[in-house]
Design a protein around this nucleic acid. Sequence first.
DNA 1: GTCTATACCTTGATAGAC
DNA 2: GTCTATCAAGGTATAGAC
Lengths: 184, 184
Amino acid sequence: MSVTREKIIELGENLIRSKGYNAFSYQDISTELGIKNAAVHYYFPTKENLGTSIVKTNIQRFEEMVENMHSHGFNERQQLDTFVKIYLKSHREQKLCIIGSLASDFNTLNETTRTELKRMTEIILKWLTDILVTGKEKKLFVFDEEPQSKAFIILSGMVASLQVSRMMDKMDYKNVCQTIISLK
Amino acid sequence: MSVTREKIIELGENLIRSKGYNAFSYQDISTELGIKNAAVHYYFPTKENLGTSIVKTNIQRFEEMVENMHSHGFNERQQLDTFVKIYLKSHREQKLCIIGSLASDFNTLNETTRTELKRMTEIILKWLTDILVTGKEKKLFVFDEEPQSKAFIILSGMVASLQVSRMMDKMDYKNVCQTIISLK
DNA sequence: GTCTATACCTTGATAGAC
DNA sequence: GTCTATCAAGGTATAGAC
């Protein structure tokens, strides 16, 4: 795996999360790397191709994170906190998450990118649901809602609070995240 | 106010909410209206101009709705339900709301559109906070969180659940909305 | 006042040089 | 295998016709 290729993926992800999928161009990436825009096409023939690869990379990263937490024996609360930390970081960087950014452009994405984005969302929702169920059994969490609904609301809350908070200055984002999960 | 102008605003809003700000073009609008793209420029010299006008129209519509609810003597719960109904309708139409759609493209918007979008978000958040406070005083709502945080979470939840649910088929969106507001 | 012809630029993408 | 020169299509926007 070439280093240029990895840089393109990284730059592309950051561009999607800051400007949005339809606002960034191959030129944005090539200028940053000091090459011509067509050089980017060598690694990713089409923009759809690049988009799909970026989502796949994110899925992989998420799965590695989950594996890592398991091997470190994190309990369900620690796992949820780690998840929230990703969003706190995004908030500090004034960037959206991949899901929130691409979800807005969903109708303009090609079939394969859509499928991967769906898959990523389903993986996260399933993981969230699972730790909610197990955490409740272990009396780590107390909540009344259906675990699936709760998972959906936690993810939605994280996603959109990034979008809305980017417009509002002066916000206690960390507090908002805590209220969203609000698992006594 | 010409009828063409109004149609452009309406078409523009629907395009932003379905394709996103950076994915729609003047051509999309002109084709639909059976005129040339440059004719649209007559009414709205620049795209930024059109974007700003669309947001302003939305603010006006929201304020009219609030006024209307007041003159009909809606209580706080009825008002909140009416607000949620806007999102249920968006969900059925498979469209995002203006805030969610433009928030993702925030960094690519010009200063005036940004200002109006911020203003719209602040107006809605203030209105939500107010009915939460008054509704709690009247014992219509029961909740423990800070009204401002609660308002922010309700708005975020509505905004993002539209985005995420558009990717997930088979979803009880109405139930999700009820859980988000979850005011006993 | 309303719209068309047209310019000009950026985009994603291809063919071919090194 | 990696990148550059170049292209056609589509974007926003202007000048001017009706």
